[in-house]
Write a protein that binds this DNA or RNA. Structure first.
Length: 189
DNA sequence: CTATTGATGTTCT
DNA sequence: GAACATCAATAGA
């Protein structure tokens, strides 16, 4: 894929509605300071969605969700962990990145995570944030600027859809997307 | 393999 | 005061 292809794919990707955006992120690559890999699991959230942080409008915590397409939304959950989202085309829309297939910087990931098993490095939203060194300080950054690097998926992957994990509202909405058969998911599809 | 529970603190009602 | 887009450790089947 040359640079023009990448620009076109990026432009198309960041014009999609929230669910299509989250689905199209499967197969894209995300790196932080050269450490990262291929996105294999995402969830879609948007403003008219009761499960979304943006459902009740803009607040101090979720303001990054109302930023530009490609902006980074990081929040703390359960007082302990960071979760990493990429803002979509419209304000209040974002995709939670739930799992990555590690491709680069495995030793750094292992050091940060304190585990050896490759399957446990990035298979969960808080795990991948820790492995890639994504913290609250990166809230409001952009995946198009250093230290991030973002590579859109080159072609449509075989993607499965199902209910989102851990939500109590809109439990049936099938806005969790997984790369079919990947061993790096947070849970089986 | 599944089920349960403790850790921990910010956000919102 | 309750809820929370989770993880790791433990117990049991």
């Amino acid at each position: 894929m040359d640079d023009r292809d990448a620009r076109v794919r990026r432009a198309v990707l960041f014009a999609l509605d929230a669910a299509s955006f989250a689905r199209a992120l499967i197969g894209a690559q995300i790196y932080v300071a050269g450490i990262g890999g291929r996105i294999v699991e995402t969830e879609a959230y948007r403003g008219d969605d009761p499960a979304s942080h943006s459902f009740r409008g803009r607040t101090a915590r979720n303001s990054a969700m109302f930023g530009a397409p490609g902006d980074v939304y990081v929040y703390r959950i359960y007082g302990l962990h960071a979760c990493f989202n990429i803002v979509g085309a419209a304000p209040g829309e974002a995709a939670l990145v739930r799992a990555i297939e590690p491709l680069a910087g495995l030793d750094d990931m292992r050091a940060r995570r304190g585990v050896e098993d490759q399957r446990l490095l990035c298979s969960g939203p808080a795990r991948l944030a820790q492995a890639l060194g994504i913290g609250l300080a990166m809230n409001g950054a952009s995946v198009f600027a250093a230290p991030f690097a973002f590579v859109p998926a080159a072609q449509g992957a075989l993607v499965r859809a199902g209910p989102r994990i851990g939500v109590t509202q809109a439990r049936e909405t099938p806005w969790r997307f997984t790369l079919d058969g990947s061993p790096f998911l947070s849970r089986r599809a």
